[in-house]
């Protein structure tokens, strides 16, 4: 196999980038869903929640067909690149960040919205305050998004191709090494993966408690 550390770093790079992308899309969506009252809002809300359980292999397959050279986005040449993996994981994490973020912001809005509006703030002006008050819940949303991306294998295997040194991540290496009967290596990577997941939630929990 490749060296251990580059695989771990590559996994983190892809998943953090995807979480970043999903935050850029999902968090504004969460705010708009929490504060706005616009036509079609319920539909979007149902869709966002419906996509929480989006199967990674389906995302992988659809993206594969789009990015393949025979597909509509084939000219971009993105299939079997880290960028394709980031795209797939962004799609997976966005509904999670939007749904959980919406819940966190809306909770604070119901609690303090009237007070904020009474003090003369418009919804837009109240948003930064709300976000600050809801940061514990938002952090949980981002963490859940990251957890989803770093642990999934179905999508990255299809659009990344598990190419050594290019698109091989922790989860695809575990799949590969299990196939070779190298359970020690697979398990070691599995432990790193679990360790990353536990450390991330610990950090968020501690940070959330201090600021609550």
């Amino acid at each position: 196999m490749d060296e251990f550390l580059p695989i771990v770093l590559r996994s983190l790079a892809v998943s953090l980038s995807a979480t970043f992308g999903a935050t850029l899309i999902g968090l504004p969506l969460a705010a708009v869903l929490a504060l706005g009252r616009w036509p079609g809002r319920q539909v979007v809300l149902v869709m966002v929640h419906g996509l929480l359980g989006l199967p990674p292999v389906v995302v992988g397959l659809v993206l594969y067909l789009l990015l393949s050279r025979s597909g509509p986005l084939g000219l971009l040449g993105l299939l079997y690149t880290p960028e394709a993996m980031i795209m797939a994981q962004t799609v997976l994490a966005t509904p999670i960040i939007a749904a959980l973020g919406h819940r966190a912001i809306e909770g604070r809005w119901l609690e303090f919205g009237r007070a904020l509006q009474a003090s003369g703030a418009s919804r837009l002006a109240a948003l930064p305050h709300l976000m600050r008050m809801a940061r514990g819940g938002i952090a949980t949303a981002l963490l859940a998004g990251f957890g989803r991306t770093v642990s999934e294998v179905g999508a990255v295997l299809i659009v990344g191709g598990n190419i050594a040194g290019v698109t091989r991540t922790m989860t695809t290496t575990i799949t590969l090494e299990t196939g070779k009967g190298n359970f020690d290596l697979a398990l070691a990577l599995g432990l790193v993966l679990v360790g990353i997941s536990i450390s991330a939630s610990t950090v968020v929990l501690i940070a959330g408690r201090d600021r609550a």
Binding site: L9, R10, A13, V14, L16, S17, F20, P82
Partner: peptide
């Protein structure tokens, strides 16, 4: 994250 991405 951005630094990671650039490295990648």
């Amino acid at each position: 994250v951005l630094a990671f991405l650039i490295l990648l």
